[in-house]
Computed example of a mutant assay.
Amino acid sequence: MTPTPESRSPVRGTRLGLALPQYGPLADPAAVARFATAAEDLGYESLWVGDRVLTPLAPSDLYPGGGTPEHPYPKEFETFADPFTTLATAAAVTRTARLGMSALTGPVYSPVLLARALTSLDLASGGRLDVGLGLGWLREEYVATGVPWAGRGKRLDAVLDALEEIWTGDPVAHEGPQWRIAPSTVGLRPAQTPRPPVLLGGFSPPALARIGRRADGWLAGWMPKEYLTGLWSVALETAERAGRDSGALRRVLRINPRAGTAVETVHDVPPCLDVARELGISEVLVDLHYVAKDVDHALELAGRLVTES
């Protein structure tokens, strides 16, 4: 049962976002429109998708969020809907919520095709898109998409270079080791000027330095406060050295209530929100895929979270 809308206000000054139903038992593309409408009515100010290409039986890498040799990644990852289709559906039925990715595995995409899809989403949403990119963690996804695992950081930089040129160049042209874009006319331009905000994921000093050099913000995951502040300082210092306004950088903190949590209360989320406020993090993304039994249950929990936080 869809909860009754109670508020359109942020939760005590924190912009609260919600993951769209996309994977595991919530992977129901036909329910995305209903979920997105209800979430916006409840007061959620952003709606998010993730990215998973495949789940190999014997992966080379363990999920960094707690994978083990017996369970290398969450079982929920085995069913994963397309992020672009999911966001396009949400864009069509919402009015004010921003739409983001946390995060697309940037290097596995052709920047020309990626730019077309992202620009179309920004236009379809009336300029509400936040582009979220990262390196991912699973090398089999790179192999399956024909992209080398080695040098993926440089490849992400090349994707960012190409996207910038496609979004802002006239005519568009790009020369690099991975792609050559012949001088071309690209009539499709984003609704946001000069381009949608680009947020990058990552949990290492080089990743945060890249954010400081060239991104609009950090897609952070839940971690101890000292790591959140220490890594963030790398981005801020790098931005200042590059002559950028470090105060304009955003942080979006992702919170995944743990499997096994008392799902009736989602009791571990409000304390995390308090930490986010303490650290000056104004945007929080809550992902209920590990604790909700189905889409209706996720909406029930989302309504309770707004009330209890």
Rank of each mutant, 00 (worst) to 15 (best):
M223C: 06
N256M: 11
P206Q: 13
D122L: 05
R304I: 04
P194M: 14
S309T: 08
W232A: 15
P10F: 05
E264L: 13
D296Y: 07
A162M: 04
L129P: 03
I255P: 08
E300Y: 12
A97T: 02
L129I: 05
A292M: 08
Q22L: 07
R250V: 11
G169V: 07
W179N: 01
D245N: 03
T2C: 00
L273F: 09
V252W: 05
P10Y: 03
L135P: 03
V263M: 14
G106V: 06
S233Y: 02
T85E: 12
M223G: 06
P177Q: 06
G13E: 09
L114R: 03
K154I: 09
T119K: 07
D82R: 06
G260A: 07
E164H: 15
Q178K: 05
H71E: 15
S110R: 06
S282T: 15
T37D: 12
A235C: 06
V143D: 14
R12H: 13
I211G: 00
E76Y: 05
G230D: 08
L301M: 15
H174T: 05
P270C: 06
V112K: 01
E45N: 08
A191H: 06
P21S: 04
R195F: 02
F84Y: 13
R180W: 03
G134Y: 00
T37C: 15
P194G: 09
L301G: 10
D82C: 01
S125N: 00
S184D: 08
S282G: 12
T79G: 03
L200P: 03
G202W: 07
S60P: 03
L62K: 05
A33V: 04
R214W: 02
V186E: 10
Y44M: 01
P29L: 06
G65D: 14
L133G: 03
S125Q: 10
T94F: 10
G17A: 09
T105M: 06
W232C: 12
P74L: 01
A33Q: 07
G221L: 12
P183M: 01
L47I: 01
D61C: 10
V266L: 13
A117P: 00
I211A: 00
A27N: 01
L114N: 02
S309I: 04
L199I: 12
A220G: 14
C272Y: 00
A220K: 05
D51C: 02
S110T: 08
A58L: 09
